[in-house]
């Protein structure tokens, strides 16, 4: 356990070149330390490249394909992959490659926004609960417990069944509903983590010193507590991002997440998953599944790498 630390001390001294970009500073923060660590982790680079590709795919799908994902030629239905259609055609004669590329947007949007939602709400509640303690802590914690008790998928199904989307619902609202459903059920996880981190940080001398100097609670939280308790939350959120993407696919697979004409991997998998279809046209199932798995894997790998970097003791 001590070795990595010493190694870092050494590399910090020897590698004075590295932090050169930063202002010649007093030493290395937790974050620059972690960055140095991350850069040496091959998993980080693999996942970062994958995520970058998927993000570009989500933002500018037309860079990857010029085919209209909404155009279907039934005459080509279920044709195997070929030079014209790299991933083949689906049951309606859509180009599977184009559909898969365009499907990234839904998954990434849901994943990123559900994560941001839980991160913001969870952190806010966690800090409030941890810092103030007492009755506010009890109230927020019990509130969190209530949502924590509802399983993610079950709750998601319940919420989305209660507020169904139809064709007139704009795309972003449909995505918003899924985000809200996942976020509403996911925040207690983050809040609990945040609360315990805050409780750990709060007794530290620098916090006491700031308080003794008359700093306001807001300043103490923003300048001292938040930066020092954020690490664990970021790690868990990154891993959760992958989990939310998988949950979106599951809900869409069940027909209650995203609705056609929206394009999503979950929907594509749902449409391709009859036993007879798997036998007749496995490519319809294969390609969206691979992309979904890779995206989830990339975010979980990134989460692992970030955790290793931020918390070397866990390695």
């Amino acid at each position: 356990m001590t070795e990595p630390l010493t190694a870092q001390e050494v590399s910090g001294a020897a590698g004075a070149l590295v932090p050169a970009t930063r202002a010649a500073d007093e030493g290395r923060s937790l974050w620059s330390d972690a960055w140095a660590d991350l850069r040496r982790n091959p998993f980080f680079w693999v996942s970062a490249v994958l995520i970058a590709v998927f993000l570009v795919m989500a933002a500018f799908p037309q860079l990857f394909t010029s085919t209209d994902p909404y155009f279907a030629d039934l005459a080509h239905a279920r044709e195997k992959p070929s030079a014209e259609a790299w991933f083949g055609y689906d049951g309606q004669g859509h180009d599977v490659y184009a559909r898969t590329i365009y499907g990234a947007r839904s998954s990434i949007l849901v994943g990123v926004f559900a994560t941001l939602f839980t991160l913001v709400i969870g952190s806010l509640f966690g800090i409030l609960a941890g810092y103030s303690g007492g009755s506010l802590d009890a109230l927020l914690s019990r509130l969190g417990d209530i949502f924590f008790a509802i399983p993610l998928l079950l709750g998601g199904i319940l919420i989305l069944y209660t507020f169904p989307s139809d064709l007139e619902t704009p795309y972003l609202v449909v995505v918003g509903k899924v985000v809200l459903a996942l976020g509403l059920l996911g925040w207690p996880n983050i809040a609990r983590l945040m609360r315990s981190s805050v409780l750990q940080v709060k007794p530290n001398d620098y916090v006491q010193a700031a308080r003794a100097l008359g700093a306001s609670p807001g300043r103490i939280i923003l300048s001292h507590i938040l930066p020092n308790s954020l690490a664990a939350v970021i790690v868990v959120s990154t891993i959760n991002l992958g989990a939310y993407i998988a949950a979106e696919a599951t809900l869409s697979y069940l027909g209650i997440g995203l609705q056609p004409p929206a394009i999503s991997w979950g929907l594509a998998i749902s449409e391709a998953s009859g036993i007879g279809l798997i036998r007749a046209a496995p490519h319809m199932l294969l390609f969206p599944s691979i992309f979904l798995s890779l995206t989830v894997l990339a975010f979980i790998m990134l989460g692992d790498a970030v955790r290793d970097a931020l918390d070397p003791k866990l390695r």
């Binding site: 279920r78 007879g276 046209a281």
Partner: peptide
Amino acid sequence: IPTDQLVGEAY
């Protein structure tokens, strides 16, 4: 017969 079994006459 489930519809997906009709495809390619799997049935």
